[in-house]
Design a protein around this nucleic acid. Sequence first.
DNA 1: ATGATGATGGCAGTTAATGTCAGAAAAGCC
DNA 2: GGCTTTTCTGACATTAACTGCCATCATCAT
Lengths: 214, 214
Amino acid sequence: MSEKPNDRIDAIQLAVSRHAARLILDQGFAATSGGQIAKAAGISERTLWRYFRNKESCLAPLFARSWQRFAEDLRQWPRSVSLEEHLADCFDLKNQSAEQIADSVLIVRLIAAFPDEPDLRSTWLMSYHDGEASLMAIIGDRLDRSHNDFDVRLCAAAVMAAVRTIDETVSLAAVRHRQTFTTAEVVTRMSRAIRAVSNLPFCDAVQPNPFGDT
Amino acid sequence: MSEKPNDRIDAIQLAVSRHAARLILDQGFAATSGGQIAKAAGISERTLWRYFRNKESCLAPLFARSWQRFAEDLRQWPRSVSLEEHLADCFDLKNQSAEQIADSVLIVRLIAAFPDEPDLRSTWLMSYHDGEASLMAIIGDRLDRSHNDFDVRLCAAAVMAAVRTIDETVSLAAVRHRQTFTTAEVVTRMSRAIRAVSNLPFCDAVQPNPFGDT
DNA sequence: ATGATGATGGCAGTTAATGTCAGAAAAGCC
DNA sequence: GGCTTTTCTGACATTAACTGCCATCATCAT
């Protein structure tokens, strides 16, 4: 709860990331310089390059944070509850902070605006890949399996691919064709996709943990 | 068969890519400069940067070519044949050129050597992502569905994730623990993984195409 | 206070990457 | 074969991403 040393720095990087996203959305990726991002975020350019190894990765914290929140929600997933029920909870707008929604909007617009910008796509893909580790933990815990079990690893990779596919198609449909989705629709699509590619039965209620932890 | 204008340039880029891979494998990514790659490949540095938008993507043609060959094999997949049978054919060393094997070795060593080099990982991920389009076509054709159908898209993404997971685990086991795999083992693992994450029944023999094309 | 530690900014330096242009090679045409 | 036209390549200058270095400032324990 108290402010750990690295929490502060993470918060700054996230703030910088939001500024970077807005600038890039306005001007395009190439046309946005490191200096501009730094200035918008109120830090020196030198500090910017200490925080981020290159321009692309300025966006990473925004993507990471979004997945992080989702992962936290999934860690709260009671064993007795099905995927659909839990996702409905997670995605319920009533349970989302304004900040969270603003971030999602930013991300959606960003990936819909530049589907072919390679630098953008690569950080986008990278962030999903980075999320696989935590998803492995979540699935492993739910099924009382090792996090490094091959099937768990495979399941995490496939589910991540499904989540990414949903995110991309929904974003594109929303921005390009002005299509709107209700929370229920997104929950339905997302859980169908996840179930469809899951090789392990973690989507339904599972036996309570015999050891009682979690 | 005849040399199309872009075939030549593609071949050069592939050759450069192999040089780049060897240099990076030897010296590491950061320690290898564009000039070195250009010199090793016998082109000027200016031309190198015309071919590749940045240093990372010097490796892309190598990865792409490897998938391309696999994709070509999959396009030959007869409708009456199961995944296992066809993969056994594709992976049979007798059906692979020396060049093909050398490339595979290069790739395997590369991703096993630098699992945490972000630039490497991002082009690695990107190349699988780029392959999704052709996989969508393959799956779509096999099932007489539109290539852009959502389920086809999802299936391609999940299968790609499975293939990547296999590639990574096999590479790591091979290089790190000197573990060797028979062709049959790889076929078994690969097809199990693909089946496990497939939401569409494209892995088994399917009805012959009523229109007779393909 | 004071000294240690670590984060920051300023500035110079390095290197990846692009703009420009002139010469070489290749493709089209006769 | 010649000729034009276009596309490709290399040399050089230039930009912009990124790093090294050091002085300064904040934080915190003593």
